[in-house]
């Protein structure tokens, strides 16, 4: 199930608040399952300013390219080099080793307005197809 302490977007990204005004972002288990085998990540370079719900990168599976939207506004501090080298980490551990970027929040209030895990669970349940894993 989707971790309780994370926040979620309708586009299936998650935000995990960290100390200070920083957070980690990634894509949900539902999203990785829909994408299938992820083979390539194009993530923003550190220092890039990203805006909430705007495109910040791309995720490629074998036969699809999907835009990656930033769940928050802020500055990219770092991206997950391990996942860039081994994109399968996003499939295998989307909430852990498969995180995508660490962002310094521009507007902390944005995080509060995102879905909590219960709301996101309901959203996914409403979409029908459940991840088989």
């Amino acid at each position: 199930m989707n971790p309780k302490e994370y926040k979620y977007t309708k586009e299936h990204e998650w935000v995990r608040p960290e100390s200070g005004n920083r957070c980690k972002v990634g894509i949900t288990s539902y999203a990785q399952h829909q994408l299938g085998d992820i083979v390539f990540l194009e993530l923003p370079a550190p220092e890039t300013q990203v805006k909430q719900f705007e495109k910040m990168g791309e995720i490629e599976s074998v036969k699809a390219v999907s835009d990656l939207f930033s769940p928050v506004t802020g500055k990219v501090l770092e991206t997950n080099g391990a996942a860039i080298d081994k994109p399968e980490l996003v499939n295998e551990d989307p909430y852990g080793k498969g995180w995508l970027a660490r962002i310094e929040l521009g507007r902390i209030s944005e995080v509060d307005s995102l879905m909590n895990s219960d709301e996101y669970d309901r959203l996914v349940a409403g979409l029908g197809e459940q991840p088989s894993e």
Partner: peptide, 12 residues
């Protein structure tokens, strides 16, 4: 690496 190609990435 077919994601570069027209049948997947279309206008991009």
């Amino acid at each position: 690496l077919a994601t570069r190609e027209q049948h997947i990435r279309r206008e991009r």
